[in-house]
Design a protein around this nucleic acid. Structure first.
Length: 815
RNA sequence: GCGGGCGUGGCGAAAUUGGCAGACGCGCUAGACUUAGGAUCUAGUGAGGUGACUCGUGGGGGUUCAAGUCCCUUCGCCCGCACCA
């Protein structure tokens, strides 16, 4: 391939220039016209592929574009550096996680540089460094102080391979998200963050996020999962006790024919103490608890259950109904007790069919009467109440309210709200994470480490081989400590924190990354946040974004910060697909950026990555097509070379508006609009390509220099190296970052002639050239004088003219 | 099952939001320049037809002067969530 432009000289030259001149350094004291542009910080894995690149390149485009518009742009970068892969590598290859992580950071930093992606590296943070995790621990203590961090025994997902606990969210298809081992259940004492206290606010405040993608907000709302219903108390026959269940379908209460408890329900042992079939029940409970949670949530699960021998009383009609234990009810949702209405809930229907339990129709289909014996499936639609005493004849929506009122009056139930969202389990029995800053004292119990004692340093030497407990347990220097309270003998918490804690506040640290006294300065973060533009993958739509919102709200409530949503605008970019699949090492379809950058230069790879398709959508990578972007840049380069050779580099303002001048201004308008409206770099670049094509083919070269200057300015955010070089060649002051984004003149951009399509009865028949703003009668006359129009309407009667000014004409004729 | 999205040339895709379908790029064809061309420049490129024209945005139906865009229906694909009581 002919090297039409020397990118191998240009790229390093400008990358060095940007670095030496600290082009992206920002003074955070200067908040005039601030713009905080944040990209999700990466986990330092072995190497980046072109799919990762999309995120950083889009971010870099935004940063450069905003800078040219005169904003004081803060574009920091860091590393989400704690995590399991480094620990797994340590177990496998006996390399310390700190070393492999630092190596990976170095590699990735180099790769980012090779893309020409620029950050204010003086603000770099890494979550695995003591000066960072000190403050992650501080965050933990704040939550503890506020009663939002607590410990409880919980049935958790257990990965025997990683010898560690996984949050339910981290289990994929019943397997460990990271190592794909089959997940089991295990009981452990765990630290939790009480995110459920914020469920309502996390949900309602989604409305504040006007510039978040709808799909992300919908996903978060579904995850929080608010449901409104009624809590009903069922007395247990022969005891003074009662069982409480939650239902969203209180209208079906008269059809409850049995009740089901989760195997984990705390009242189960007491209830079955004297059961005849106690052994059978215990065996069943054991069996259920051995199934992993994930498979219990599948609809393919075969419903199984066992009768407890007990009965409960339906409080609305005094009906005695049997109490069962079944595998399809989970303790995690609602109260762990479900009133079963087989006629109007499909799960209950299947279960009742299997165990021959009673079915009563209480909601009738308005079209034809239902018969419980003949039903093939549950009737879950709207209908009219039957067999429901005084509520008979009401439609079920109305009945829901009336029954709830009546039950509240009689004290047998009350309206209630349930969330799907569960508390955030943050304990990890791992080494490579921030130690939880808590101490267990023989006398004082659980005691937090004093803030001034932070950080609780992660010891360097430990045995990594998993034992089922944190590797920290083996390090006695770490474990043995003194109580912050009584100075007596005490032991440290040996679990570390979930890495999502690290990443739920990093955007605050960037404002003052070196501050030793504080995690952040309130005054400064209040000025710089919320983040003006957050850019990242849609895979973080729920967990990371929800946790960050939660921590922000907690810090706001404690008056550490003065805002309660961290990210004002969110942009989630699509994945890059190769051969039909998401790029991944295991699929072997990863495209490395390095050889492409070597062959075509950084700008070509950037332009192609952006040109590939709309940024929020997935796009298919095609190696072959990269060449097109290279050709385009080389084409621009040759234009500049020609101008320099002909000594025509300075812009001579022309009086008249040539078609090239008009195109130039139209292009400024188009490119600006495309970037502003959803970072549509694909159409922005195609606009510049059109201008370049026009420059090549234009006959009159009056405004060529202006057009080329504009091209270089507009292209700069996408292809900064070659543009900076060309800008210098054109005799301008170095450094396009200091240039103003070009402005267009609406009068110049305006077309002087419009090609107006003429339709006859809705079909395109001809076109006429008209001046913009032409009046109706002149337009009609012009159209009627057109030869083709004459042919089409000859001898026919015109019924109607439809004229959309400056757009089109449609003539309706009678045949 | 529920929720969200998508379906446009040989390919990646445009379409200023109901107003000329296929911009721009890849690929392909031809010509020019060249010792040469896998460089570059110019032109062409949805299908059918010599042509006037006809047909074309997964399929079917509808609303409208006008539909890729709105409505109904159907098929296919992708993503998210899932026995949420």
């Amino acid at each position: 391939m002919d090297k039409a432009y020397p990118f191998n000289e240009i790229d390093p030259k400008w990358q060095k220039y940007w670095k030496d001149n600290k082009c992206f350094a920002v003074d955070t004291k200067d908040t005039a016209k601030k713009f905080y542009c944040l990209m999700m910080f990466p986990y330092p894995s072995a190497a980046l592929h072109v799919g990762h690149g999309r995120n950083y390149i889009i971010g870099d485009v935004v940063a450069r574009y905003k800078k040219m518009q005169g904003y004081n742009v803060l574009a920091p970068m860091g590393w989400d550096a704690f995590g399991l892969p480094a620990e797994n590598a340590a177990i496998k290859n006996n390399i310390h996680p700190r070393i492999s992580t630092m190596n990976n950071i170095a590699t990735m930093k180099k790769q980012l540089g090779a893309w020409g992606v620029c950050y204010d590296w003086s603000r770099e943070v890494a979550s695995c460094m003591p000066d960072y995790y000190k403050w992650t621990q501080w965050i933990f203590l704040q939550l503890y102080k506020k009663g939002l961090a607590y410990k409880k025994k919980a049935s958790v997902n257990w990965c025997s391979s990683c010898a560690t606990v996984l949050a339910n969210e981290q289990v994929v298809d019943g397997k460990c998200e990271r190592c794909s081992t089959e997940v089991e259940q295990k009981d452990l004492e765990q630290w939790f963050f009480k995110i459920t206290d914020y469920a309502e606010r996390l949900l309602t405040d989604l409305n504040k996020l006007k510039n978040w993608p709808e799909r992300v907000k919908t996903m978060q709302a579904n995850w929080i999962g608010k449901s409104v219903g009624v809590e009903i108390h069922f007395p247990i026959e022969g005891t003074e006790k009662q069982l409480t269940c939650f239902t969203t379908r209180v209208d079906t209460i008269f059809g409850a024919t049995y009740m089901v408890l989760a195997a984990e329900h705390p009242d189960v042992p007491e209830l079955i103490k004297d059961a005849k079939n106690k052994n059978e029940i215990l065996d069943f409970i054991d069996e259920v608890r051995h199934e992993n949670k994930e498979s219990r949530l599948k609809d393919t699960l075969e419903k199984k259950g066992v009768f407890t021998g007990r009965y409960v009383i339906n409080p609305v009609n005094g009906k005695k109904i049997p109490l069962w234990i079944a595998n399809y009810v989970l303790m995690n949702y609602g109260t762990g007790a479900v009133m079963a209405v087989p006629t109007h809930d499909q799960r209950d229907f299947e279960f009742a069919a299997k165990y021959k339990l009673e079915k009563i129709v209480v909601i009738d289909d308005p079209k034809f009467s239902l018969d419980a014996q003949l039903m093939k499936e549950a009737y879950e639609k709207q209908g009219i109440l039957v067999n429901s005493q005084q509520f008979n004849g009401m439609n079920n929506k109305e009945a829901m309210e009336k029954i709830a009122d009546w039950m509240e009056e009689k004290g047998i139930g009350k309206r209630s709200i349930q969330f799907k969202l569960r508390d955030w389990l943050i304990s990890r029995q791992r080494y490579w994470g921030a130690p939880i800053p808590m101490v267990y004292c023989e006398k004082c119990g659980i005691v937090p480490v004093k803030e001034e004692e932070l950080p609780v340093l992660l010891p360097e030497t430990v045995e990594f081989k998993p034992t089922g407990e944190s590797p920290l347990k083996g390090n006695s220097d770490f474990v043995n400590t003194t109580c912050p309270n009584c100075k007596g003998k005490a032991k440290r918490e040996i679990d570390t924190m979930d890495t999502f804690v690290d990443s739920s506040w990093y955007f605050l640290r960037y404002i003052s990354p070196k501050n030793k006294e504080l995690p952040f300065v309130k005054e400064d973060v209040d000025k710089w946040l919320p983040v003006d533009q957050y850019i990242g993958g849609v895979e973080h739509a729920i967990l990371h974004l929800l946790y960050s919102r939660f921590i922000t709200k907690v810090l706001c409530d404690m008056e550490h910060i003065g805002f309660d949503e961290p990210f004002k605008n969110l942009f989630t970019q699509g994945m890059i697909i190769k051969d039909g699949f998401k790029m991944s090492k295991s699929k072997g379809n990863v495209v490395a950026p390095d050889p492409l950058i070597e062959k075509y230069g950084a700008d070509t790879v950037r332009v192609y990555t952006l040109f590939i398709g709309p940024p929020e959508k997935d796009a298919e990578w095609e190696d072959r097509a990269v060449e097109g972007s290279y050709r385009f840049l080389a084409r621009v380069w040759r234009l500049v070379e020609a101008l320099v050779e002909q000594n025509k580099t300075s812009v001579v303002p022309s009086k008249e508006i040539t078609s090239l001048k008009r195109k130039t201004h139209q292009t400024i308008k188009k490119v600006t609009y495309c970037i502003e409206d959803g970072f549509r770099c694909n159409t922005a670049i195609s606009g510049i390509m059109e201008l370049v094509n026009d420059i090549y083919t234009c006959k009159d070269d009056t405004d060529i220099t202006e057009a080329v200057h504009t091209t270089v300015l507009l292209l700069y955010p996408f292809a900064p190296h070659v543009c900076d070089e060309m800008w210098s060649m054109l005799g301008n002051e170095r450094d396009l970052l200091k240039q103003k984004w070009p402005k267009y003149d609406e009068d110049i951009a305006k077309e002087t002639e419009i090609t107006m399509p003429v339709q006859i009865k809705g079909k395109l028949r001809t076109k006429v050239q008209v001046a913009p703003g032409i009046d109706e009668s002149s337009l009609k006359e012009l159209v009627l004088n057109d030869e083709k129009t004459k042919n089409w309407i000859e001898g026919k009667q015109i019924i109607k003219w439809i004229i959309v000014p400056d757009k089109m004409v449609n003539i309706i004729i009678k045949d």
